[in-house]
Simulated assay, not measured.
Amino acid sequence: MKDEANYSLPGFTNAGLLPPGDYELTLAELRRSLLVRGEGSSPNWDSDWRLTLVENLAVMAGQLWQIGIEEIFVDGSFAEDKVHPNDIDGYFCCELKRLASGELERELNRLDPHKVWTWAPESRRPFRGYPKRQLPMWHIYRVELYPHYGQLCGIRDEFGQELEFPAAFRKSRGAHQQKGIIRLIKEEEGT
Rank of each mutant, 00 (worst) to 15 (best):
Y149H: 09
P85K: 10
R173K: 15
K132I: 11
H84W: 10
I69K: 04
A100V: 03
F73V: 00
E95A: 11
P136C: 02
P166R: 12
G174V: 07
C94G: 05
E107S: 13
W117F: 15
K115T: 09
E105V: 12
A167V: 09
Y141M: 01
L96V: 11
L57R: 04
S123D: 02
A61C: 11
D112Y: 07
Y146M: 11
H139P: 02
P166S: 04
R156Y: 13
P113W: 02
C153H: 03
L145Y: 06
P126C: 06
N86Q: 14
D112L: 03
R110T: 10
R142M: 01
H139L: 06
R124W: 02
G102Q: 14
F169S: 09
V59F: 00
H114N: 10
A79T: 15
K82T: 15
E107M: 11
W138P: 00
M137S: 09
L145Q: 08
K97R: 07
I155F: 11
V116T: 15
M137C: 03
L104Y: 02
A100M: 03
D157S: 01
A167M: 06
K97S: 09
R110W: 07
F92G: 02
K171E: 15
H148K: 00
S101P: 07
L57Y: 04
Y149N: 06
A120N: 03
Q177S: 14
L111A: 05
D81Y: 14
R128S: 14
S77D: 15
G90T: 07
R173M: 08
Q151L: 10
P121I: 00
R128Y: 13
F165P: 06
E144R: 08
F127H: 05
L57D: 04
L145V: 09
C94A: 01
L145I: 08
V59H: 01
F92W: 03
S77G: 15
E164H: 08
L163Y: 01
I67N: 07
T118D: 00
L99F: 08
S77P: 15
P136I: 01
W65N: 04
C153A: 08
Y141H: 00
K132T: 10
I88M: 14
I140H: 11
E107Y: 10
I140S: 00
Q63M: 01
E164G: 06
E122Q: 02
A120K: 05
A168Q: 07
E103K: 14
Q177E: 15
E144C: 04
S172L: 13
E122R: 00
E80G: 15
R110P: 02
S172F: 13
I72N: 05
K132A: 12
E158Q: 06
D157V: 08
V59S: 03
I88D: 08
S101E: 12
A58H: 00
L111H: 04
L57T: 04
S123N: 01
Y91D: 09
